[in-house]
Amino acid sequence: MAIEQPFNYAYSDLELDAREGEWVESFFRDNQTPIADPAAWLSEDALPPNVLLTSVDKVVNWSRRYSMWPVTFGLACCAIEMMTMAASRFDLARFGMEIFRASPRQADLMIIAGTLTWKMAPWLRRIYDQMPDPKWVLAMGSCGVTGGLFKDSYSVVPGFNKVVPVDVYVQGCPPRPEALLQAILDIHAKVDKMSPTRKAVQP
């Protein structure tokens, strides 16, 4: 019966310890000088080009515009186009809006996509009331604007503005994702006109 020989390592433990010790010692010697304070660049000559003057309203509106979270509210066929807009081809994430919230208390934009029935209308209003201010509503599709093909039906709401105040309408059956993106840009334009420090909203 053959006796297995121990594995021959390239370096012994002592050699490895010596190499690591030399590396640590050299690193220790070369790094004794403290690194300069990062705030040292704030000299009087360098400061003016690095200062941006703006208003609080501009900063707040900018942050609202690029962190607008839609609430999930797809009712019918228009919701397919809304989901397409959130996918990689149209890339809603460019506007910081890729997070569709399941809770209305974490959302500030309601994209109502599809046909709204009177049986569903109280729940739509309830979700809208649960959203914190400021909030915006986007009516997507012909059913949201006028009731569409079903406007004469006993069970369909002839326009979302019968239930909630609508900021922007998107016509189409269904509208293309580009139209929905343009409507979102229109809402961004409305946000830019707001005055968060003053409660009055400019028209």
Rank of each mutant, 00 (worst) to 15 (best):
F27D: 06
L14R: 11
D13C: 07
E15M: 04
N8Y: 06
D17F: 10
L16P: 01
D37P: 00
Y11T: 10
A2F: 12
P34V: 01
E44K: 02
L16V: 15
A36T: 03
A39Y: 06
I35A: 13
F28P: 00
N8R: 11
N8G: 09
A2D: 14
R19V: 09
F28G: 05
Y9K: 10
L42Q: 01
D17L: 13
Q32L: 15
T33S: 12
L16H: 08
D30L: 13
Q32H: 08
A36R: 08
F27W: 15
A10F: 14
M1F: 11
A18R: 06
S12K: 08
N31H: 15
S26H: 15
N8D: 08
D13K: 07
D37N: 09
D30F: 09
S43A: 00
D13I: 08
A40S: 07
N8A: 12
R29T: 06
D30H: 10
A2W: 08
F7Y: 12
Q5W: 10
T33F: 09
E25Q: 10
S12V: 05
A40N: 00
Y11I: 08
P34H: 02
P6G: 04
D30G: 02
L42I: 04
R19M: 15
D45C: 02
R19T: 08
E4A: 13
E25K: 02
E22M: 00
F27Y: 11
Y9V: 05
R29F: 10
P6Y: 05
G21R: 02
Y9P: 07
V24A: 15
E15S: 06
A40E: 01
E22P: 03
L16G: 03
I35N: 11
I35T: 13
P38G: 01
L14Y: 14
D45M: 02
E20H: 10
P34L: 03
S12R: 05
E15I: 05
S26W: 15
E44P: 00
Y9W: 14
N31Y: 04
F27A: 06
Q5M: 10
E22R: 01
